[in-house]
Amino acid sequence: MQKKIGYLTLTAAAMLAAPLAAQARDYISIVGSSTVYPFTTVVAEQFGKSGQFKTPKVESTGTGGGFKLFCSGVGVETPDISNASRAIKSSEKETCASNGVKEIVEVKVGYDGIVLAHSKDAKPMELELKQLFLALAKDVPDPKGGDKLVPNPYTMWSDIDRSLPKQKIEVLGPPPTSGTRDALVELGMEAGCKKFPSLKALKEKDGDAFKAACHTMREDGAFIEAGENDNLIVQKLTANKDAYGIFGYSFLEENLASVKPTVIEGSRPTYDSISSGDYPLSRPLFFYVKKAHVGVIPGLAEFVAEFTSEKAWGPEGYLADRGLIALPDDERSKAAQSAKKMAPMK
């Protein structure tokens, strides 16, 4: 009888294993940041050319959208990697953990800068972060004086400062799900907001009120959410020389024939100014790996090794040709070693 039970148990296990094997994916699934997307796509193409594994499937969902999919659980129906143009948030890590995604490998891949670009045919403009905040914030300090916030009254750039062009404020930018939007708010809007003493003091008194004042974009048509499609923004800038668009430096590099960047705080976005941190809107880029999928999804560890190889992400690597700004040598070496070990985040 015991032998029969053992036989039945083994048979049942074999029957369960068969459909799981049939459902297993034979390619890597990657989601996330539209900024990191071009780099990952290039690595995926190089990886696929080796012939040992299938070319990974890469989708541009935005950083927030990517984490939502990535943190939905463990299994072949969920992504293996999520690209991000900012670090994962505590709330996202908590969502991951609650859904069984408990071991996440963070890989910092390089740096990028957020640019405010416009048509190559447009007149150049130089901006201070304070002026950028006044152009894009929903509510701003009353220009008549005092600490009161009022609905943004500025419709022309010259309304903010006479030195700026006498043209309508029209800025196309990313949606709230984008890591580029998060970085713009933190590095640009908040930094500009703090130039006002009353708002800087508000951060200490009431963090929520400060965030509402400094992070909320205007909704009156001066700032236009253009989705996760940076190509569409470039097309619109080409068609309208008075409009400005917000996207990553790497995308600017690909489109220098049609658009040019705005100088911010006296600094032009270049490889060197972003790498050194002189450009005020510089930020790191990441991708995150679901460790539970390593060894289950064919080629996952090998793909990470390709991405973190010198021939890919080094200063002379093929990603540098696409606009990726490499990590400093020591930092890059440590990141590559950590990725090879698949060391989870603490």
Rank of each mutant, 00 (worst) to 15 (best):
73 G>D: 08
74 V>I: 15
77 E>C: 01
78 T>K: 14
80 D>I: 09
82 S>I: 15
83 N>A: 15
83 N>V: 01
84 A>H: 12
86 R>T: 15
88 I>A: 07
88 I>Y: 05
90 S>I: 13
92 E>A: 04
95 T>K: 12
97 A>G: 04
99 N>M: 00
101 V>D: 02
102 K>P: 06
103 E>T: 07
104 I>K: 01
104 I>C: 01
105 V>C: 03
107 V>S: 10
108 K>Y: 06
109 V>F: 08
110 G>L: 08
111 Y>H: 12
112 D>K: 01
114 I>P: 07
115 V>T: 14
116 L>Y: 10
122 A>E: 10
122 A>G: 09
124 P>C: 01
127 L>M: 12
128 E>G: 13
128 E>T: 15
129 L>F: 00
129 L>P: 03
130 K>N: 03
131 Q>G: 02
133 F>T: 05
135 A>T: 10
141 P>V: 00
143 P>W: 04
146 G>T: 10
147 D>A: 13
148 K>F: 06
149 L>E: 02
151 P>F: 04
156 M>D: 07
159 D>Q: 01
163 S>P: 05
163 S>Q: 13
163 S>V: 11
165 P>H: 07
167 Q>E: 13
169 I>V: 12
169 I>D: 05
170 E>P: 02
171 V>F: 13
171 V>T: 05
172 L>N: 06
172 L>M: 13
175 P>K: 03
177 T>P: 04
178 S>P: 05
179 G>W: 02
180 T>R: 05
181 R>D: 00
182 D>Q: 09
183 A>C: 01
184 L>T: 12
185 V>F: 03
189 M>Y: 10
190 E>T: 13
192 G>S: 07
193 C>S: 09
193 C>W: 03
194 K>F: 03
196 F>Q: 01
196 F>G: 01
196 F>H: 11
197 P>M: 07
197 P>Y: 06
198 S>R: 03
202 L>K: 08
203 K>G: 02
204 E>Q: 14
204 E>T: 14
205 K>T: 15
206 D>N: 14
209 A>G: 08
210 F>I: 10
213 A>Y: 11
213 A>G: 10
214 C>M: 09
218 R>G: 14
218 R>T: 15
220 D>Y: 04
220 D>S: 03
221 G>Q: 10
221 G>K: 10
